[in-house]
Design a protein around this nucleic acid. Sequence first.
DNA 1: CGGTATCCACGACGATACTG
DNA 2: CAGTATCGTCGTGGATACCG
Lengths: 96, 96
Amino acid sequence: MEVALAAVAGRWTTLVLRELMHGSASYGELRGRLPEISSKVLAERLQALGERELVARERVAGFPVRTLYRLTPAGEALRPLLVELYRTGVALSSAP
Amino acid sequence: MEVALAAVAGRWTTLVLRELMHGSASYGELRGRLPEISSKVLAERLQALGERELVARERVAGFPVRTLYRLTPAGEALRPLLVELYRTGVALSSAP
DNA sequence: CGGTATCCACGACGATACTG
DNA sequence: CAGTATCGTCGTGGATACCG
């Protein structure tokens, strides 16, 4: 449980993962969809997710240069957990 | 998602909940089963879970006095999430 | 565009000691 | 037994500025 919790813990982590569940996205796209996250924290999250091999990076040449982030198969394995987090969050919010 | 994450976040929280999933337990029993947690942190966790109404307290008169903690229905609603956390943790640990 | 580098503030955790 | 009180440390997140 600690392993899974560590994978999704930290502010913004679940939201970043949620965006990537929709498909690959660039750094700038992620910033656009999560306007409140600072560049530092977004970079930290992407790096942490990269080190755990939950997210992969792909540099796209051209001008301007873009960097696409997408989920790895291990990252996809988190989908049911995120769904359950959402489901449980709704249940807790509506019950009280 | 943030709501559900907040409910289970924090060191020891999932382990405390896991113990209570087995059934009600007293403060001392919890300390016995989680020897590394400090009295302060255990008290904090139980108080936080109590405030969210995920756990209920019951004082049992007699000598010595005992205090039983048990999950509320809202706390029981977390069970599938803990199961999913465990399942995902195993998946992440065995994949790499 | 896609990041790093610094610095600061805050809260969580933990050890220890004490109480009703 | 079941906590509360106090204190120190450290990690995290955020603001700001800067770079290839």
